[in-house]
Structure formats: C-alpha cells, structure tokens
C-alpha cells in the first residue's frame, strides 16, 4: 500500500511527459494541441490526488450533518475547476489559429510552414 499510495503521482508524471513529448516532437499543429491537452490533464490529476482523504466523501455538508464525517479537501477542486476552464479556452483559441494557418498556408505541419516562411 505504501508504494501504491504514490501511483497517482507517477501517472501524473508519465502523462505529463507523454503530453510534453507530443508537443515537442509532433510537427502537426492539431496534434500539438492534443498533446497540450494531455499535458494539462496530468496537472489536474496532480491537484485532485491531493484532495483525497481515506474514508472521506465529497465536501458537501448537508444541513444538520453529523460532526464526525470526514470530507475531502475542497481547495484543489476549486483550483482545478478554474484550470479546466483555462485549458478549454486555450484549446479553442489554438484550434482557431490552426484553422487560420490552414487557410493561410494550406498546411498545418510546422516544418512546411517554417520552410514557406523562410522562402518568403
């Protein structure tokens, strides 16, 4: 159990790096954004893994609830709600850029775009 208690954080690291790898190596702009999505999702996992308390429940306290219920930590949840919104906003803006790049250059591969810019 001791070892498995860190499994979430390892998966966080692996997902983070899968995303980063895709962003660096893939020349396709859409694929870069997909990689960025995975990269950001990994961070959500890091934060949400912090909030868990063994034997706890979601932090919703009904009126007149018993005192001895354990609740998970609400703060990382609030932060990640914001981060998810930020993520989708960035993705939407990036996709709009991809569409415009496709219209302006006829391709969405970074290497081709760079060589077209160089020829200009």
């Amino acid at each position: 159990m001791e070892i498995l208690g860190l499994y979430n954080y390892w998966v966080f690291a692996i997902l983070l790096l899968i995303g980063l790898y895709a962003v660096i190596t893939k020349p396709n702009f859409t694929k870069k954004l997909i990689g960025l999505n995975i990269f950001q999702a990994a961070i959500f996992l890091l934060y949400i893994s912090m909030d868990k308390v063994d034997g706890g429940t979601a932090p919703i306290i009904p009126h007149g609830a018993a005192k001895d219920i354990i609740y998970s930590n609400p703060v990382p949840q609030v932060l990640i709600l914001t981060a998810i919104v930020v993520g989708i906003s960035t993705t939407a803006l990036g996709l709009a850029l991809v569409v415009r790049i496709r219209e302006a250059y006829g391709t969405i591969e970074e290497d081709k775009v760079i060589s077209m810019d160089r020829d200009q």
């Binding site: 999505n37 999702a41 959500f44 949400i48 893994s49 909030d51 868990k52 308390v53 706890g56 429940t57 979601a58 932090p59 919703i60 998970s72 990382p76 949840q77 990640i80 709600l81 998810i84 919104v85 993520g87 989708i88």
Partner: peptide, 14 residues
C-alpha cells in the same frame, strides 16, 4: 478521488 464537481466538469468539458 471524491471530487464530484471536478468530475462533472471534466466530463462535460473534456
């Protein structure tokens, strides 16, 4: 992980 609000958001958004 007991984060119901975030789960709902991730499902709807992601």
């Amino acid at each position: 992980l007991d984060a119901a609000d975030v789960a709902l958001t991730e499902a709807a958004v992601g």
